[in-house]
Design a protein around this nucleic acid. Structure first.
Lengths: 343, 343
DNA sequence: CTGAAAGCGCTTACAG
DNA sequence: CTGAAAGCGCTTACAG
C-alpha cells in the first residue's frame, strides 16, 4: 500500500543474514538461532515490514483467506439483508481474525455462477455459504462444489446425505420448544406462517417440530392454518392477512422467522386483534428487533455467535485437510410478552 | 482452490500461441489480433481458467482489493453492530463488485494498530473506514494514514481541515429538518439525547442543526435538556431516564440516532408517558427497526445505499490516482406516528 | 501483432 | 543453523 515498502532483502541486509534466514525466522522456524531470530524481528519492526501476502500466497499456494458468500433473496429488497446475519457476520470476522485468516465478502444471487467463479479462483482457500433461498435450487451447486474439491461449509438445515458440510441450528428442536410453549399457554389452534416444504427445509423442520410437540399432546398442526411466506416482514404481513381472509380460526401464530412474526403482528393489530389476548405470537431467530416490538416477541433464539465461530473453525479444519462434520446447534426459547408464560 | 488448476501456459498450448499473448488477450489488449483473442478466450473457457490473483497482484503491485474496516464501540455488546451499517455494507459489496474489486472486511477496535497493519500490508489498495467512536481519538490515526500515503475514505462528519477524505450525510441539515418538524408540531421544549461535543461531531451537528431551526423561530435548544448517550438502545433508555430523574420539563425528544430514540421511547412508556401525546419523538438514521416500534418512529433518513456507492467510487478514484473530494449527502425527513404532521 | 525473457517477493528443498 | 538457488504464475518492456 505504501510506496517503497521494505522487502525481506532489506531486513536481511539490516540484520546481516541471508534473505532465506529472514523468511524462516519470520515464519517462526525452530531451525533458526534464537538470537538471530531476535535480530531479524527487531529489524522487521524497525522497517515496518510485513510479509507480502501475494508473494507468500503465490509461493505456498495458500491464500490465507476465506470467502463469505451471502445469498440474497432475489424477491426481497436488495438493501434489506436479513438482520439475523449481522451478529453472525460479526462472529465470523472475529473468528477469522483469531485464526489468522482474511475474510473476503461477497453478495451473490443464488442463480449466478459463483460455484464456478470461486471454485476456480485462488482468492480464497474455502467458502462460507450463508443465506436464505430455495434449497433445492441450491443443491446442484453444492454438488458441483464437492466435485471440484472446493472446501466449503454452509449455514442451513443439517440433513442426511447432503453434499458437503452444513452447520445449522436444531430447527426441529426449536419448533418443538415453540409448540410446547404455545400448548402450555393453552393454545390449540396454531397457525404456521412460512414455507413448510422441502424447498425451505429449515422452515419445514420448525413446522415439524411444532407438530411433534402437539402430537405428544394428542394434537396435530392443521395444514389449513399454514400459509407460505419467505423470511420478510412484508411476507409475514401478507401471510397473516391471507390467513384471516380465509376465515381461519386460530389462537396462535408461529412465525417461521422473527421477521415473519413481526409482519404478522402488524396485520393482527390492524385487524383489531389483541396479542397475546386473542392471538399469541411466537417467532424464530431472536433478532434485535424482537425486543422492541409491542408486545415484545416471544421467540426461539439461535446462537448466531457460536454459529459464526463454528462455521469458521469447521472450514479451517477442512482447508487444513482435517476431517470435519456437520453439526446442529441447540436453540433456546425466549419468553416475552407476545406469548408470556402462563401464570 | 481446485487442484491442478490451469495456468496461462496451458491456455497458450491449447490456443497455439505464446504465454505472453495469452496474458495480453486476457487483459483485453488491443494489440492482439481479434481472431487470436477469440481462440484464447475459447481455450480459457474450456479449461475453466481464471487469472491467478496472487501472481497478477505480485506482478502489477495492485491488489484489486479494498478493505472495509468497521470500528466497534468497545463499550457496546460485541455482537450488536449498529444495524445502520447493514444496508451500507450491502451497497458497498455491490459497488465493489461492479468496480471489479474484491472486498476484505475486518472489525477493529478503535484503539488497535490497524493504521500500521493495513498501511504497510499490500492486501488492499485502499481502506474504507466505518464506525462510531470518539472522533478525537480517531484523528491521530487518520493523520498517520495520510502520512503513509494510504488511500482511504471514511464515513462520518465532513469538516474543514480534516485529514483525508470523508463522506457523510448533511447532519446539520438533517438536524434542522428534525427541529423544523418538531416546531411545526407545536413542540418547544426539545430534549436532545446523544453526546453533543466535538468527540462526536455527527451528533453535535445534528444538535446544532436542530438548534438552528429553533433560532430561526426565535427560540433555542436548552442545554439542560441534553443528555449524553452513545448510539445504542440501552444508552437511549438510560439517557431518557436521567432526563426524567432531573425533573426536566420537555414535550419532545430528539434522539441523536434511531437506537437512542427507540431506547428513549421504552423509558417514556415505562414512565407512563404517551408518545406522541405527552412527548413527541424523532430519531435519526431510519434503520429498519424504526418502522416497527409502537408508535412507528419519525426520523431523518440517511441514504445508506447511495453512501455505500459513493464511498467505493471515491476510494477507487483515489486508488487510481484521480482527485476526489469529501461530500455531504442530503437527508430526508420520514414522518411516522411518534411525531406525526400536525393535521 | 507476437515471442523470449526478466522480475514481482516470497518459501523451501538442497547442500553445507 | 545458514546460504544459494529454483520457482510459484503472472505482466510488460524489449526486440522483431
Amino acid at each position: 500500500m505504501a510506496k517503497g515498502k521494505a522487502t525481506s532483502f532489506d531486513i536481511a541486509y539490516l540484520a546481516g543474514v541471508s534473505q532465506s534466514t529472514v523468511s524462516r525466522a519470520l515464519r517462526g522456524s525452530p531451525l533458526v538461532n534464537p538470537e538471530t531470530t531476535r535480530r531479524i524481528l527487531e529489524a522487521a519492526e524497525q522497517l515496518h515490514y510485513t510479509v507480502d501476502k501475494h508473494a507468500s500466497s503465490l509461493r505456498t499456494q495458500r491464500a490465507g483467506t476465506l470467502a463469505l458468500l451471502l445469498f440474497e433473496d432475489p424477491t426481497s429488497d436488495a438493501s434489506h439483508i436479513n438482520p439475523f446475519f449481522l451478529p453472525m457476520l460479526s462472529a465470523i470476522t472475529r473468528a477469522c481474525a483469531s485464526h489468522g485468516q482474511d475474510l473476503l465478502i461477497s453478495f451473490q444471487q443464488l442463480s449466478h455462477d459463483w460455484h464456478a467463479d470461486y471454485g476456480d479462483s485462488k482468492k480464497a482457500d474455502g467458502l462460507l455459504l450463508l443465506g436464505y433461498g430455495d434449497y433445492l435450487a441450491y443443491l446442484g451447486k453444492l454438488s458441483k462444489l464437492v466435485e471440484q474439491g472446493t472446501p466449503f461449509v454452509r449455514w442451513g438445515a443439517v440433513m442426511p446425505d447432503q453434499p458437503g458440510i452444513s452447520i445449522g441450528c436444531d430447527n426441529m428442536g426449536g419448533g418443538r420448544q415453540a409448540g410446547a410453549h404455545l400448548l402450555a399457554c393453552g393454545r390449540r389452534r396454531i397457525a404456521f406462517l412460512g414455507d413448510a416444504s422441502s424447498h425451505y427445509p429449515e422452515f419445514l423442520d420448525r413446522f415439524l417440530g411444532c407438530d411433534a410437540a402437539l402430537r405428544d399432546a394428542g394434537l396435530a398442526m392443521d395444514r389449513a392454518l399454514q400459509v407460505d411466506a419467505e423470511s420478510s416482514e412484508d411476507a409475514g404481513y401478507a401471510a397473516a392477512r391471507e390467513l384471516m381472509r380465509r376465515g381461519a380460526i386460530f389462537d396462535a401464530v408461529f412465525g417461521a422467522s422473527d421477521l415473519i412474526a413481526i409482519g404478522a403482528m402488524r396485520a393482527l393489530a390492524e385487524a383489531g386483534l389483541d396479542v397475546p389476548g386473542d392471538v399469541a405470537v411466537v417467532g424464530f431467530d431472536d433478532i434485535p428487533a424482537a425486543r422492541i416490538t409491542t408486545p415484545a416477541l416471544t421467540t426461539v433464539r439461535q446462537d448466531t455467535v457460536r454459529a459464526g465461530e463454528l462455521l469458521v473453525e469447521t472450514l479451517v479444519s477442512l482447508v487444513d485437510g482435517h476431517p470435519a462434520q456437520s453439526q446442529r446447534l441447540p436453540t433456546e426459547l425466549v419468553v416475552r410478552r407476545s406469548c408470556p408464560a402462563r401464570g
